[in-house]
Computed example of a mutant assay.
Amino acid sequence: MNVESIIKTDKVIPLHTRTIIHLLLINQKIHETMATALKPFEVSQQQFNVLRILKGQKGKPSNLSTLNERMVTKMSNTTRLVDKLLAKNYVQRTICEHNRRKVEITLTKKGSEVLTQMSKIVNDAEKELLKNFSKKELEHLNSLMDKF
């Protein structure tokens, strides 16, 4: 990916600026690819993230606070994300028997089945995005990104 040609400039871009632009362009490419992969399911990347978090709970209920803490993209609209998943019957929301102020969210059978389909497509998209990297290069890239 040649940053200068993408942003159509002949100027020499300072290395720190070029690096940030490069990261932004990569982020956009990843976002577009994942959105395209999830489009047939009419689910956003954030909704997909919520479903994966709930699957990771292994049947244990989660609450909005836990979901928000574990989200890849921290958002204040977790309630809205859950509402959209409720409308699709992918999650279930119940009031805790012991504490009526606590709302518990779990993955439904339908949600689990659809998540399995989505996960395969997302996994394929991830592999396609990273096909030009060896395992060693990906490990090195992750090590460098850990510095952030």
Rank of each mutant, 00 (worst) to 15 (best):
N2C: 03
S5G: 04
K8Y: 12
T9D: 01
D10K: 15
D10E: 15
R18G: 04
T19W: 02
T19E: 07
T19S: 07
I20T: 13
L24I: 09
L25R: 11
I26N: 02
N27M: 12
N27L: 11
Q28H: 12
K29W: 02
K29M: 06
K29V: 02
K29T: 09
I30P: 02
I30R: 11
H31V: 06
M34R: 03
T36N: 10
F41R: 01
V43Q: 03
Q45L: 08
Q46A: 12
V50H: 00
L51G: 04
I53R: 00
L54N: 03
G56W: 01
G56Y: 04
G59I: 04
G59L: 03
P61H: 07
S62T: 09
N63D: 15
T66L: 12
L67H: 00
N68T: 15
N68Q: 15
E69G: 08
E69L: 05
R70Q: 15
S76R: 07
N77L: 04
N77Q: 01
T78H: 01
R80P: 01
L81I: 02
K84T: 14
K84F: 14
L85G: 06
L86N: 07
A87K: 14
A87C: 06
N89R: 10
Y90D: 08
V91F: 09
Q92W: 08
Q92R: 08
Q92A: 13
R93D: 13
R93C: 13
T94I: 12
I95M: 10
I95W: 07
C96R: 09
C96F: 08
E97N: 11
H98V: 06
H98S: 13
I105K: 03
I105C: 05
T106F: 02
T106Q: 11
T108F: 03
T108D: 00
T108M: 02
S112L: 03
V114C: 09
Q117V: 12
Q117M: 11
M118L: 06
M118W: 05
K120T: 14
I121A: 12
E126D: 10
K127H: 13
E128D: 14
L129C: 03
K131H: 15
N132Q: 04
S134W: 05
H140C: 10
L141V: 11
S143F: 09
M145Q: 08
D146T: 06
